[in-house]
Amino acid sequence: MEVVKSMSQKTLSASESDIGSVVSMVDRMAGMMDCKKALLESGGDIIHFVLLISRQGKVRLTKWYSPYSQKERTKVIRELSGVILTRGPKLCNFVEWRGYKIIYKRYASLYFCMCIDQDDNELEVLEMIHHYVEILDRYFGSVCELDLIFNFHKAYYILDELLLAGELQESSKKTVARLIAAQDSLVETAKEQATIISNMIGQATK
């Protein structure tokens, strides 16, 4: 009987997954007919996360705008590097994954990936990725992977001026550059002051 039981279980789970697909199909159809309702229910065009992965599968930047636990994050990264790094060069830049879409673009040895909902504008996200790359390029002066490794925090700061809460924040490259420069100089001033003070303390305690 054990055998029969296990067999039924297998068959059953197969039929269950089929039910799932039917249900999701029905959902999607319903969504098409009643777009407004679907829009109200969905989170609405946000970027769920941004990933930078090197061709060797090393993570160079991760930014999560939707709640993922640390465990899920690791799993997502592993899964996606498997999917994206193996795609051929001439294929489209979109991958459907777990009901979401991953928009990715490769620049030299780095893959820039963003995850969005099914209904979002894939082409726009592609443009956002390019926007980010251009800003990085301007900031570092023809950016390369090494820049992003050693100055990973800078890459994060720039991203934070570009995206917030998974939404685009600024469409002007110049403005982003200006804001980053202003904050960098704040840090520099603080550092200089700290050096001056420590020198003074040093001299005073001599």
Partner: peptide
């Protein structure tokens, strides 16, 4: 200070 806060918030988000 700003530099401390800047890195602190970055760490918080990451």
């Amino acid at each position: 200070g700003f530099p401390e806060k800047r890195i602190g918030y970055l760490g918080l988000m990451l």
